[in-house]
Design a protein around this nucleic acid. Structure first.
Length: 418
RNA sequence: GGGUAGGUGGCCGAGCGGUUAAUGGCGGCAGACUGUAAAUCUGUUGGCGAUGCCUACGGGGGUUCGAAUCCCUCCCUGCCCA
């Protein structure tokens, strides 16, 4: 009787946690850990390591964070590790290049901005934050050597990114080999029951399991989420590739960026970023193939759901309306129902009757250089109050403000008096 | 330590004394079209007070009327040997 209820709960938790995962090593062990946790009333310790070099969170990060949140909702404890010490090395994960190391101040500052964002998803009450410098900085050289002696170069070279670089004859520095060791040692230090991350972390997770066993602990369960593709649909979402959707972005940009993903990765986005049931997602995909559901309609719903998650339904609906006005109905800048970015008229222009388009746009910060703006004009990418400007010498009258301008496809400016 | 091949624009990669701001590809941007900031096609892609000027081919120095291209020197990387 007791036992049946327990097993039901174990299965319920497993079902929740399984959704969207790429791999769990192993599911049986996870079930066992949940069972023990329920019996003893001791929550599982679920580890996530974060690299403090990229303080702007994007949707790619939310895939793993969302999964952590599910653990919390099931009563478990998240152990969030800031890799301050690791950041001084430069994580080679998924990279073809060595990362530059970070300074202490940068790391602190990054960590602060990081948590402002992380707590939009995680429950601070069930989150324990640790810096790995706490235990890594006190290791003696002898201890480090001993740690390193447990693994072989060949094992480390098994790692995909290392072996790629090795075969491509791209330099791999010796210190980079320590990254997996440090991360694994983190698991030992915090006695992790489960570790979460992307599939690119698999090697590190497995290494941690071995190291924990060597230290007399039970091996952690490794739970890997798929890597979210970026806007290009091919590479992983990342800031450095500039193919990301930031969680702090405006509703309009968030919606628009969602609409710019290739049709082919919609399914992935649905599973990893929304809570639409998996059966329904399969149904959506089937109907697109059949031709009974327009891909654009499916994508609009996705964009709406994602935007709602971070901005609420009112803002999301407004973003959708704006998108339809600008891109479906192609409303010109003469219209008022477009989301404009307000910019003040530069001070030294007040009193002037008119100004050259290029100069005005430059002063207002619409582009990095005047050459770029000239190019935009010549290519027909500039519109002022609904009129496309073709001449780079065009002078804009400053008599009637606000001035509505379109710069390129997606920037809309409204120049106002201060 | 020895030998050898290299370091070119956001990235990859040609050029090897003179129309070379530097072929090409990727990426970016714009336009057309459309089903969306999808797809496809076309154009464009260092900066500026602009028929010219400035900056740029790892750093510094030199040869020359003229260098990314030749010489010296320093720094960095791959590969082979020890």
């Amino acid at each position: 009787m007791e036992n049946t209820a327990l097993e039901q709960e174990v299965n319920r938790q497993l079902a929740v946690l399984r959704r969207g995962t790429a791999e769990i090593i192993s599911e049986r062990e996870l079930g066992e850990k949940i069972r023990v946790s329920l019996r003893t009333g001791k929550p599982m310790r679920v580890k996530l390591g974060a690299d403090p070099s990229a303080p702007d969170l994007h949707l790619g990060h939310t895939v793993v964070l969302g999964k952590l949140r599910q653990f919390q909702d099931l009563g478990h404890q998240v152990v969030f590790i800031i890799g301050d010490y690791t950041a001084r090395i430069g994580d080679p994960s998924g990279r073809s290049k060595t990362r530059p190391p970070l300074s202490g101040e940068q790391i602190d500052c990054n960590a602060r901005t990081y948590f402002e964002q992380v707590y939009r998803i995680l429950d601070p009450q069930r989150t324990e934050v640790r810096y790995n410098g706490e235990w890594l900085s006190v290791l003696s050289f002898e201890e480090i050597i001993r740690l390193a002696s447990r693994f072989t170069i060949q094992q480390i070279l098994e790692r995909d990114d290392f072996s790629k670089r090795y075969h491509a004859q791209v330099p791999i520095f010796v210190h980079e080999f320590f990254y997996p060791l440090m991360q694994s040692y983190d698991s030992v230090a915090v006695e992790a029951d489960v570790e979460l991350g992307g599939t690119d972390q698999k090697f590190n997770f497995l290494l941690a399991r071995e190291l924990q066993v060597q230290h007399g602990q039970a091996a952690q369960v490794a739970l890997m989420m798929p890597i979210l593709a970026g806007l290009d649909g091919v590479q992983k979402m990342s800031k450095s590739l500039d193919n990301y959707i930031g969680i702090a972005e405006s509703p309009v940009d968030m919606y628009g960026k969602c609409m710019s993903i290739p049709d082919g990765i919609m399914g992935q986005y649905y599973t990893l970023l929304t809570d639409v049931p998996e059966t329904e997602i399969a149904d959506i995909q089937r109907r697109i193939v059949e031709g009974t559901l327009h891909p654009m309609a499916a994508k609009k719903r996705l964009a709406l759901l994602v935007t709602e998650r971070f901005h609420g339904s009112t803002e999301a609906a407004a973003a959708q309306a704006n998108f339809e006005a600008v891109f479906s109905r192609r409303v010109s800048t003469a219209s008022a129902d477009i989301a404009y970015e307000d910019v003040p008229l530069p001070g030294d222009l007040s009193g002037q009757p008119d100004v050259g388009v290029v100069d005005l746009l430059f002063m207002v910060g619409a582009a990095a250089s005047k050459s770029e703006l000239r190019r935009l004009v010549q290519q027909g990418g500039i519109e002022v109050n609904g009129e496309r400007i073709a001449d780079i010498g065009f002078r804009v009258s400053l008599r009637d403000l606000p001035l509505r301008m379109r710069v390129g496809k997606k920037r809309f400016l409204s120049v106002n008096r201060e």
